[in-house]
Design a protein around this nucleic acid. Structure first.
Length: 646
RNA sequence: GCCGGCUUAGCUCAGGGGUAGAGCAGCGGUUUUGUAAACCGUUGGUCGGGGGUUCAAUUCCCUCAGCCGGCACCA
């Protein structure tokens, strides 16, 4: 063996090349660059892949040293935190089995198997132990074990879940065991060189149940969630963001702003209060104008339909568990409350003979649907059992499907933009295992939806196997002001219903043909969308959406009559206005209506009453402006114009 | 549906085996006020429902419901 065989070339990020002995570790290269870097080093990136600092480099490679400042650091810290958590839990609660503990957005979790539940009180104890282990600065050691030895070892320890994981690893995978002091776990790594490197910018957040391997048929484990960051400042910032998110929670704002409520006797259904319903109507009318302008026809179909119809549609077989059923005593009938509007729309289509000249028929309905959702799925007005879809079904000649999918998608994008959502992602969900229709039909429908996206030049992600049993779909997810995604709009192809209900039209050649059917919703559910809008704007709605657009607040009781007149004229101009003539100081009124997030306050004191003016004060803005009443009305009416009418 | 937590006045919340409190809101007054809380007085609760233990339960136990956080689900 000559000397050159023992040398390798390591290329650093700045392009510099170091010739080192084969088997040199990133740690020693870092040390040779400088003691500061050696100290700051958390891990290495060898040929682009994250690796342990003590992993010998065996061939020419590119190398970068990962420090706390790098984006990768978070991933490493969080991964180590998961181990730290498992270690602390096993020290404090002997007999607890470890399973998996991955890195997730903002943090990590670890799933444990233990008979007694963890309580929220356990979290501070575990967290304290984690910090103790960090202070211990236990060294990390990596070992590679033969598979059989590893399985036998973990089985002997009573760690049956770990043994199962190892047994399921592909043969090609090396079984790596990481030691942190005298605690060890199976892990693919990499890890920081000691527990002291993790730092203490972490916090355990919550305990939850989670099924082994995500399957509800399996044993339920106990999951502990934590968040972890590079330093205390980042942690504090994250906790602050959570607090801010809580402030815009639609359930909280719904109560504070008197928009809606839900009560025990109508679980999963919304009582819309006057202000909430003002918002609801504004959105509904807006959507109605948009679809009217695009050649839709609006219909209304029955809430209760006989069981036989649901049998024919296929819902009784496929969707029965989610349907509310109504038995009628006098007649021997079973009715179901509609969970979807589509079967009803096909009934309307089927009345009378349709010609190809009549197509496309774009049949819309603000359709109230009810679905029996699992109790654990309910959440405020975001996930409910009674909701209204801004639904439509488009019956068209099969070759027009791409065009119609394009039109529907354009409507969705335009609507989101006008409502203040610019960040939208599209997914194409393709054939699920359980489905109807031939592969040829699916090929065509999936290709049509993809073609629609292509022609619109919108990027989309594939979502394989997630289509409906009756056809593929495009799903539109919008992202709100704090970056959370909400799936709202959808465009779906349906091969099922036209067939089952024998929908037909007379084609150009006089033959009877089956129309293609497209389901689409823009907002999805009114309830859910309003929830999203509330959280997106944190209750501070743009003027056109605000439930109360302006409050006329008096300073002295002499201005009461004038305030009434101002209110009357603003209402004539189409604005939602209240007058506050209570015997309170203007400070008090300003404060109260500011907290209520009323966008515009019109102050009317003695001066304004005499001069026929109002003083406008905008929400959160101290600067005021006094205008002639007529000018103020014109200004506000213009500002309050819905985006589609501007 | 599953795991855990929670449920006290209209709202936000404190309390705790001997029969319940605060702030705000409400109501009654006084005050006529100029841009984020004027002052005085005052009403208000089967402590989520049911059952049990106890001389005594809002408090402890069981059970049901709802809500919250996850998991599963979202045709």
């Amino acid at each position: 063996m000559n000397a050159s065989d023992n040398s390798i070339r390591v290329t650093l990020p700045d392009g510099a090349v170091r010739v080192v002995t084969r088997g040199t570790t990133p740690a020693s290269i870092a040390a040779s660059i400088g003691p500061g870097l050696a100290k700051a080093a958390l891990a290495a990136r060898i040929n682009g892949a994250l690796a342990d600092l003590d992993l010998p480099i065996e061939a020419d490679a590119t190398l970068s040293i990962v420090t706390r400042k790098d984006a990768d650091a978070l991933e490493l810290i969080r991964h180590d935190c998961a181990h730290l958590l498992a270690m602390a839990v096993q020290e404090l609660f002997p007999g607890t089995q470890v399973t998996i503990g991955p890195v997730i957005e903002d943090g990590f979790f670890y799933d444990f198997a233990r008979n007694e539940p963890f309580t929220p009180d356990d979290l501070p104890r575990i967290e304290a132990r984690m910090k103790e282990i960090v202070a211990r600065d236990a060294a990390t050691r990596r070992e590679v074990w033969p598979r059989d030895k590893a399985i036998a070892h973990f089985k002997a320890m009573g760690e049956s879940f770990k043994a199962e994981i190892i047994a399921d690893l592909p043969e090609s995978e090396a079984i790596k065991i990481y030691w942190h002091g005298d605690w060890h776990d199976l892990c693919r790594g990499p890890h920081l060189m000691s527990t002291g490197k993790i730092g203490t910018a972490f916090k355990l957040m919550k305990v939850a149940g989670a099924y082994w391997r995500g399957d509800s048929k399996n044993q339920q484990l106990q999951r502990i969630y934590g968040t972890a960051w590079r330093d205390e400042k980042e942690l504090a910032a994250h906790l602050h963001r959570l607090e801010e998110a809580e402030k815009r929670d639609h359930r909280r704002l719904g109560k504070e702003m008197d928009l809606f409520h839900i009560q025990e006797e109508a679980v999963g259904q919304v009582f819309w209060h006057p202000k909430g319903h003002a918002l609801y109507r504004t959105l509904e009318n807006y959507i109605r104008r948009k679809i009217d302008a695009r050649g839709y026809v609006e219909v209304k179909t029955p809430m209760l339909l006989d069981r036989t119809l649901w049998e024919r549609s296929g819902h009784w077989a496929k969707y029965r568990a989610n349907m509310f059923i109504a038995e009628v005593e006098d007649e021997k009938k079973t009715l179901a409350i509609k969970p979807m509007n589509c079967p009803g729309h096909v009934q309307i289509f089927n009345q009378g003979l349709k010609s190809y000249r009549d197509l496309p028929i774009r049949m819309a309905e603000f359709g109230a649907c009810h679905r029996y959702e699992p109790s654990g799925a309910l959440s405020g007005i975001m996930r409910v059992r009674g909701f209204t879809q801004d639904d439509a079904h488009i019956f068209c000649e099969p070759h027009r499907m791409v065009d119609e999918a394009i039109k529907a998608s354009e409507l969705i994008f335009e609507t989101y933009r006008e409502l203040g959502f610019d960040d939208v992602k599209v997914k194409l969900s393709t054939r699920p295992d359980e489905r109807i229709g031939s592969d040829a039909i699916w090929d065509k429908a999936e290709a049509d939806l993809a073609e629609a996206c292509k022609r619109l030049s919108i990027p989309y992600d594939m979502n394989p196997g997630e289509g409906a049993f009756y056809g593929p779909k495009l799903e539109f997810t919008l992202f709100d002001a704090i970056g959370r995604g909400w799936q709202c709009g959808t465009v779906q192809v349906d091969f099922n219903l036209p067939d089952r209900f024998d929908a037909e039209y007379v084609a150009e050649d006089g033959s009877r043909k089956r129309p293609a059917m497209l389901h689409r919703a823009v907002l999805g559910s009114m309830e859910r969308f309003i929830g999203v809008v509330i959280e997106h704007y944190a209750g501070k709605f743009p003027l056109w959406l605000a439930p109360v657009q302006a409050v006329v607040a008096t300073i002295v009781s002499d201005a009461d009559d004038y305030a009434g007149e101002v209110r009357r004229q603003l209402r004539l101009a189409g604005l939602r206005v209240e007058a506050d003539t209570r015997n309170e100081k203007i400070n008090y009124k300003i404060r109260e209506h500011s907290l209520a997030k009323v966008p515009v306050m019109l102050v009317a004191g003695k001066r304004e009453a005499e001069e026929g003016t109002v003083t406008i004060r905008r929400l959160g803005v101290e600067k005021q402006e006094t205008l002639k009443l007529g000018d103020a009305i014109a200004l506000l009416a213009k500002e309050a114009t819905p985006p589609d009418l501007r």
